[in-house]
Design a protein around this nucleic acid. Structure first.
Length: 276
DNA sequence: TCCCAGGCTCTCT
DNA sequence: AGAGAGCATGGG
């Protein structure tokens, strides 16, 4: 990993296969906003402004001192520690995958916070992306920690006293009881991130599905986006459409082990290129 | 106005 | 095991 800490920012040089717009607007993360020439959002509690300057990725951090440890954390969050060049080359041995990747070749699957992905993807069910973002922001402004004019996504502890009625009042609809159940299970230790990370994919999926309102799709999103289980392959309406038209024989073997990452290129391609 | 959204639960076969 | 209705809300 190559980075330098230069005054008020971290600079990562020679970053390839990474585009901020494609990565933050492809439906995997809901709490990064466009800001000046890049995006602003939290990475492990650190409020970060990310932008490119002559080919170098720059990260300003507002509420933490710039340390090597923080620089490494950001690097991992952005999945810059994975060799996307080699992985995409493997995927692209399949012509259809090559087409999907070509549409947004700068997508990287972020390594997001477990609890945040659990809650935001429970919110995501039968919902559209702008509204998911709106509800996630509402929850943050009400229960998160203020940093400047931004708010962190709340922790399980910060949501521990929130009732089903409170969620209903915030317009979460039928998801109110699901959010309550998820938070309580995390608080009482029934659902633990450290346990999931030690489990194999199948076992971890069953473990998450115990939570009310968490089915196969939401569990797969949490495992992929929040637990580093890259073989997890979330199937939503868009992916089902894409699979039917683009991959009637199933996903190519070249994607094995990283089906979830392939899924993200396909999802993004499908949203903008396949009719409903 | 109407259809639909990064689905899940419940019920009925 | 598999199909189908119902769900809260609001974006487009």
């Amino acid at each position: 990993m190559q980075f330098t800490i230069d005054g008020d920012k971290i600079i990562y040089e020679n970053i390839q296969d990474f585009d901020l717009n494609e990565t933050f607007l492809c439906g995997q993360a809901f709490r990064f906003d466009r800001y000046e020439n890049g995006f602003k959002g939290f990475i492990g509690g650190a409020l970060c402004y990310l932008y490119f300057d002559v080919g170098n990725l720059c990260v300003r951090v507002y509420n933490f001192p710039l340390t090597d440890e923080l620089a490494k954390k950001v690097y991992h969050f952005l999945a810059l520690d994975m060799d996307y060049s080699a992985m995409k080359k493997r995927f692209e041995t399949d012509e259809t995958m090559k087409k999907a990747i070509g549409y947004a070749s700068g997508i990287r699957v972020l390594n997001q916070d477990f609890f945040e992905t659990l809650i935001t993807f429970i919110i995501s069910q039968n919902n559209n992306i702008p509204r998911i973002k709106k509800l996630a922001d509402t929850l943050s402004q009400k229960y998160g920690t203020r940093v400047g004019d931004s708010f962190t996504f709340p922790t399980a502890q910060q949501l521990s006293q929130v009732t089903q009625q409170d969620y209903a009042d915030m317009k979460f609809g039928f998801r109110a009881k699901y959010l309550y159940d998820a938070v309580q299970r995390v608080i009482n230790g029934e659902v633990q991130e450290s346990v999931i990370k030690q489990m194999q994919y199948d076992e971890a999926r069953q473990y998450l599905i115990k939570i009310k309102g968490v089915g196969p799709k939401v569990a797969d999103c949490v495992l992929l986006f929040g637990c580093e289980k890259y073989e997890s392959f979330p199937r939503d309406v868009w992916i089902n459409r894409a699979m039917a038209t683009m991959f009637p024989e199933g996903l190519p073997k070249a994607c094995q082990g990283y089906e979830g990452i392939a899924q993200q290129y396909i999802f993004h391609y499908a949203r903008f290129n396949i009719d409903k």
